[in-house]
Design a protein around this nucleic acid. Structure first.
Length: 589
RNA sequence: GGGGUCGUAGUUCAGUUGGUUAGAACGCCGGCCUGUCACGCCGGAGGUCGCGAGUUCGAGUCUCGUCGGCCCCGCCA
């Protein structure tokens, strides 16, 4: 069988659409050989394209059958034939097209294929480096085709929605100016200006604010951003933001635009995003869940149980409380049945998370049990169980120490327990806004404050007076959108007043001179009638991953990089020629 | 930068206490088969045990180093 040109053969149907309604039609199918079942004088070929599988049968024609026998996995073929009903006992209920088959009268080989390093048809578990090296084959698998199609639908829905809401999609530069704060920049050398560099944008932040100054009113952009930091399952060096900015915005306005969008995205996977979303102040999120991105699918709220132990003889807890610490804990539902070994494991986990120790307690039929029973007294333990709301079937875990550190540790433990106990329903979608972030974060090593969000974030009006007196306590008009414990977006109401902006730069230790050097054009622009404005940036990769039920954003990106920021398929990064370096006047250090 | 884990046939893996010729499944190649659909049956080929040192009479197995994948901490305005 020889490879032939396509010529004027046109596809009449995809491989996923033929049904009993098409019986009797003459069709042309084009696609990849998924599998061949050679029964001697009768050969079945499953033909595959992005839309599905159709069974092709070759028989009653010696040349045709002989050709079909030579087909191998992933050969590209054209099939001309007639749609026929399968016999009652030959119907395949597992296939969408299983009621019919195409009886071929001609099979044209369009291209051969080398034996692939892994089978597409078998869908085996393949190691990720193999998948990434042969990404073009990995992307042929139904899982990836489904993921990329779902991502496409989400993208289209987003564009449609913002268009309906009167937003303009405006592109901003990829070659822009480095700003040393935040993440490390990817730099691009300028040939025309030796020794000078562009930076790839970490986000279009300043440009979108300038678009508000320009009167664009409502802007969005689905845009690549670049950050040269270490990678994670949910972090790639280049990733896609849905960037949004609104003039005359308040938090309420931003939320009222975003929440219906989330509902539309949920509709793609047949569910909803009940509105309005919960708004949880940052401080409360830390206290109750030990994180600024709580997963609300699993309950297990962290409680302050200091009261129960303040008067007790249990010195570990009493000392912690006396030195300004707290006893905090949460209830693991149904875990009173934990074995000694499971309990020890919990304690061990807590220690690995940095806890000095972990005390558990339960009040089952056998009476109150806890390693601290003797030291703390049954009364204190009973009070703690009661305060925490523990039922007889539940287990209470407690730790003592500095309030925030204790909550953060318990928050980690809470997530571990939730995973172990399968409390995180994969079909549930728990949205919330985390609001009232601190303006600044104290950097211990550098002995100075740093902005938590970015330097253009406005303070809460009520906290504005704290900026110069107690900046560590000042809260910002910043918010994060959290879905199932994943930060899928973050934004703020911005500063639109030049003097306030200069004050914030000053508080961050950025001198006037420095501010001018880095943000001069932006500060200049602020004085020409800047409307109050604010916005948000959504992590499209993370949203797509959650919609697809994938644990890693690599599975919703066509060509992702490894955790070492390498493209295993393209082989990037790589050395470049001397000539290129000379042109750029760059010498490796 | 740090911690954890993995690396054996094309692929996914097994490989006992350090001991003969390193196995299985799928895939691949050849043959048979007219109703299969993860077709079946018969036969066959296929290995730098990631790489490099070391210990040992002997290393897939133990030690050190190194490279790579993944997860986490730091980092990620």
């Amino acid at each position: 069988m020889i490879v032939e040109p396509l010529e004027n053969l046109a596809r009449t149907h995809t491989c996923g659409e033929l049904t009993a309604a098409d019986i009797g039609k003459d069709v042309v199918l084009l696609g990849w050989v998924h599998r061949v079942r050679d029964l001697g004088a009768l050969v079945f070929v499953d033909l595959r394209d992005r839309h599905g599988l159709t069974q092709v049968v070759a028989r009653d024609n010696d040349t045709l059958v002989a050709n079909a026998k030579q087909l191998r996995s992933e050969f590209v073929i054209a099939v001309c034939g007639r749609v026929e009903a399968r016999g009652a006992d030959a119907v395949n209920p597992k296939m969408k097209t299983g009621e019919v088959e195409v009886t071929a009268n001609a099979i044209r080989l369009l291209n051969e294929a080398k034996v692939p390093p892994f089978g597409i048809a078998d869908d085996p578990p393949i190691s990720e480096d193999m998948r990434l090296k042969y990404r073009y084959l990995d992307l042929r698998r139904p899982r990836m085709q489904h993921n990329l199609a779902l991502r496409h639908r989400a993208t289209m829905e987003i564009r449609k929605y913002f268009d309906e809401q009167g937003f303009l999609e405006i592109e901003t530069p990829m070659l822009t100016k480095s700003t040393p704060e935040g993440a490390r920049d990817y730099l691009v050398p300028s040939r025309v200006h030796p020794g000078e560099f562009y930076a790839l944008p970490q986000s279009p932040q300043i440009f979108k604010q300038i678009l508000m100054i320009s009167g664009m009113d409502r802007y969005f952009q689905i845009v690549k951003c670049f950050r040269d930091e270490d990678l994670r399952a949910d972090r790639q060096p280049e990733f896609t933001q849905v960037d949004v900015e609104i003039s005359f915005a308040t938090e309420d306005l931003v939320f009222s635009v975003l929440e219906p969008l989330m509902d539309r995205l949920m509709a793609i996977v047949g569910t909803q995003a009940p509105r309005p979303f919960l708004r949880l102040p940052y401080a409360e999120a830390i206290a109750k869940y030990g994180t600024d991105k709580p997963d609300l699918r699993c309950g297990m709220e962290i409680r302050n149980l200091s009261d129960a132990f303040a008067e007790s003889n249990f010195s570990v807890f009493r000392t912690a409380i006396a030195t300004g610490g707290d006893v905090r804990g949460f209830v693991v539902p149904g875990a009173a049945k934990y074995s000694r070994r499971e309990l020890d494991e919990l304690v061990e986990q807590a220690k690995q998370l940095g806890a000095a120790g972990l005390v558990w307690a339960r009040a089952s039929d056998a009476g109150v049990q806890s390693p601290a029973l003797k030291a703390a007294g049954e009364g204190a333990i009973r009070t703690a169980l009661e305060r925490a709301g523990a039922a007889p079937s539940d287990l209470l875990v407690m730790a003592a120490g500095a309030p925030e550190a204790t909550s953060r540790m318990l928050g980690q433990l809470r997530l571990n327990v939730a995973k172990k106990e399968n409390l995180l329903d994969p079909d549930a979608f728990a949205f919330l806004w985390v609001v009232d972030f601190p303006m600044f974060e104290w950097l211990e090593e550098e002995g100075r404050y740093e902005f938590m969000h970015h330097p253009f974030t406005a303070p809460l009006e009520s906290d504005r007076h704290l900026l110069e007196t107690d900046q560590g306590r000042a809260r910002a008009r910043a918010y994060d959108l959290v879905l199932n414990g994943s930060e899928i977006g973050g934004g703020s109401i911005r500063i639109h007043d030049q003097s306030l902006q200069q004050l914030v730069f000053k508080l961050l230790g950025i001198s006037d001179e420095e501010a001018r050097l880095r943000f001069g054009f932006f500060v200049d622009a602020l004085v020409y009638g800047t409307p109050p404005h604010g916005g948000i940036a959504l992590g499209l990769d993370r949203i797509a991953a959650i919609l697809c039920g994938e644990a890693s954003i690599r599975d919703v990106i066509a060509f992702p990089k490894t955790t070492q920021a390498v493209d295993l398929m393209a082989g990037a990064p790589s050395a470049v020629s001397e000539k290129q370096l000379r042109e750029l006047r760059i010498k490796p250090v």
